[in-house]
Write a protein that binds this DNA or RNA. Structure first.
Length: 457
DNA sequence: TCTGGGGTCCTGTTTCGC
DNA sequence: TCTGGCGAAACAGGACCC
C-alpha cells in the first residue's frame, strides 16, 4: 500500500481526494513521510525536507501522521493476509510477504493470480483503499513485482523469465542497494544488474565486502531462497527526538536524555521486555552522528538504571556547538522476567526502596501539558457540539480552522474557532468504509505493495 | 526552512577472559 | 609469573529500509 498514509488521509477527508496531500513532520526540521500521487507530480517525495516540499507544492495539504489510525487499518489488512497463509511477514505497516504455497492457497501461476485478484478486492471492500500485489517465486522478486504493480495493480513474474527481466534494470532496483552502494558500484563501472553478473562474485566481494558481495551477486542471478518468517522478535527498542533548534545548554541536554530514557523504558515495559545494552545517540549541529553504548551485567527495565547509564554515556560526549538530535535505546533484549532483580543487584545500581519513586517519576513524565497550537495538530479529527465531526485544517494565533466532513460525506465547509472554544473537542477517527455497500469511498490512484510469494511450478 | 523516527544488518577495531 | 594467542563480546560507525 504505497503512499499509504496519504491514501488513508484522502479516504477519511473527502475534500482531499484528487488533491496533493503531504504527510510528515510539520516542524522546521520535518521531512515528508508520504506524498500522494498528486503531490508527487510536483516532485515531492518521501524523506524530502518539508520546507522543500512546501516550495514545490505550496498548495498541497500538509498533515501530521496519525499512526494509531494507520496501524488499525494495517491490522485489518494483515488479517486478510493471515487468512491466506500462516506465513505472513510484515515489513512495515503497509507491506508484507505471504508464502502462498505454505498456506495451500496457491500452487501455480493461475491459482496465484486468482488469489491476488481476490485479495485486492477484499482489501478494497474492507478498507476502501487500494493495494497492489506482486507474485513471484522469491521475496526479492515479489517485492520488485509489487513495485511494478503499483499503483493499484497486480504483476506476476513467471519462473524462467527472472534473469532476462532483471538484466537491464538498474542496480538500485535490488533490495539493499542504496545511494552509497549504488555510487560505489557506479565508480566500478557497474550500473545494471547484468553488469553485476559479468563482474563476477569475487569482484563484488572485493568491492562490497563478504556478506554484501555474496548477497548481491546471488540477487543479480535471481537466487533468493530466504524464507518468509512469520514472527520476528524485536532486537532493540529506541526513542529519539530532533529539536526544532539546536540545544547548547549542557544541563538541558542532560535533562532531555533523562526524558528520553524514561520514554524508552515505557516502551520497553509496554512490550514486556528488558535489555542489557544501553545506547545513547547524539547528532550534533553539523549533522555528524555518534553513538555510545554500555552493556550491563544483565537485562533491566529499571528506569533508574537506564537513566544513569545514559547519563554516564553522555559524559563521554562533547556537545559544544550544540546538538540537533538525542536518542536513547536498549538492545540485547530479553523477555521480562524475575531474573531482572538479580541483574539489577549485580549492576550495583538501584536500591529497592527507590523503585516506587522511580515508577512514579516515569508515570509523571507522561506527555507534558501541550501548548495551545499543539492541541490541534493538522489533520486530526475533532467534534464540535453544533457542527459535528471534522478535522483540523490548521491552527495558530489562538485560532483553529476546521473542515466539517466525514469519510462518507460530500466535501465539507470550513469554519474557524478560538483554540479554547469549549464546544470543540478532539475526536477519534471514523471508519473509512461506510456501512452502505453502494457507497464507494476509494481514494484515487493509491498504490499498494503487498509482496506475495507464490510457488514456482 | 536541508536532512524524521524506528528499526535491521554488517564491518572493523578494541577489549577481555582463558 | 610472564607472555602470547585466540575467540568471543563489546563497541562504534555506516548503509539501508519503510
Amino acid at each position: 500500500m504505497d503512499a499509504f498514509f496519504a491514501s488513508v488521509e484522502q479516504a477519511s477527508k473527502p475534500s482531499l481526494r484528487g488533491k496533493a496531500v503531504v504527510v510528515g513532520g510539520l516542524g522546521p526540521r520535518g521531512v515528508v513521510a508520504t506524498a500522494s500521487y498528486e503531490a508527487r507530480v510536483f516532485g515531492v517525495h518521501s524523506a524530502m525536507p518539508m520546507g522543500q516540499a512546501r516550495r514545490l507544492a505550496p498548495n498541497a495539504a500538509y498533515l501530521v501522521p496519525r499512526f494509531g489510525l494507520y496501524k488499525a487499518i494495517s491490522e485489518r489488512v494483515m488479517e486478510l493476509l493471515r487468512a491466506l497463509s500462516p506465513l505472513v511477514e510484515p515489513l512495515s505497516l503497509d507491506e508484507a510477504f505471504v508464502d502462498l504455497e505454505a498456506g495451500g492457497a496457491a500452487w501455480d501461476e493461475a491459482s496465484a493470480r486468482l488469489v491476488g485478484t481476490q485479495l485486492r478486492a477484499d482489501i478494497r471492500a474492507l478498507t476502501g483503499l487500494t493495494g497492489s500485489v506482486g507474485l513471484a517465486a522469491s521475496k526479492m522478486l515479489a517485492k520488485i513485482a509489487s513495485e511494478q504493480a503499483k499503483p493499484d495493480g497486480l504483476v506476476v513474474i513467471e519462473p524462467g523469465t527472472e534473469r532476462s527481466m532483471l538484466g537491464p534494470m538498474s542496480v538500485r532496483t535490488l533490495p539493499g542497494v542504496g545511494p552509497a552502494t549504488g555510487d560505489h558500484l557506479r565508480r566500478a563501472g557497474i550500473t545494471t544488474v547484468e553488469e553485476i553478473v559479468e563482474a563476477g562474485e569475487d569482484e563484488l566481494v572485493r568491492l562490497l565486502g563478504r556478506a554484501h558481495g555474496h548477497g548481491l551477486y546471488a540477487m543479480a542471478l535471481a537466487r533468493d531462497d530466504r524464507p518468509v518468517v512469520a514472527e520476528r522478535e524485536a532486537k532493540s527498542v529506541s526513542v529519539e527526538d530532533t529539536y526544532d533548534v539546536d540545544i547548547h545548554d549542557r544541563l538541558r541536554v542532560g535533562l532531555e536524555v533523562q526524558r528520553l530514557a524514561d520514554r524508552c523504558v515505557r516502551r520497553l515495559r509496554g512490550a514486556g521486555l528488558s535489555g542489557r545494552t544501553i545506547v545513547l545517540k547524539v547528532r550534533r549541529f553539523d549533522f555528524s552522528t555518534l553513538t555510545r553504548s554500555e552493556t550491563l551485567r544483565g537485562p533491566t527495565d529499571d528506569p533508574g538504571v537506564i537513566r544513569e547509564a545514559a547519563a554516564r554515556l553522555l559524559d563521554s560526549v562533547d556537545t559544544t556547538g550544540g546538538v540537533r538530535l538525542l536518542g536513547v535505546g536498549v538492545s540485547g533484549l530479553a523477555d521480562y522476567t524475575q531474573e531482572d532483580l538479580f541483574a539489577q543487584a549485580a549492576g550495583e545500581r538501584t536500591n529497592p526502596e527507590q523503585r516506587p519513586a522511580e515508577e512514579h517519576a516515569v508515570a509523571a513524565a507522561e506527555e507534558q501539558p501541550a501548548l495551545a497550537e499543539r492541541r490541534w495538530p493538522a489533520g486530526h479529527d475533532v467534534r464540535h457540539a453544533e457542527f459535528g465531526h471534522g478535522w483540523v485544517q490548521g491552527s495558530g494565533l489562538g485560532r483553529v480552522t476546521v473542515r466539517f466532513e466525514t469519510p462518507g460525506s460530500q466535501p465539507g465547509r470550513v469554519r474557524t474557532f478560538r483554540t479554547d472554544d469549549p464546544e470543540l473537542e478532539p475526536a477519534d477517527p471514523l471508519p473509512l468504509v461506510s456501512m452502505r455497500p453502494d457507497e464507494s469511498c476509494g481514494p484515487d490512484g493509491e498504490a499498494g505493495a503487498v509482496g506475495l510469494r507464490s510457488a514456482a511450478p
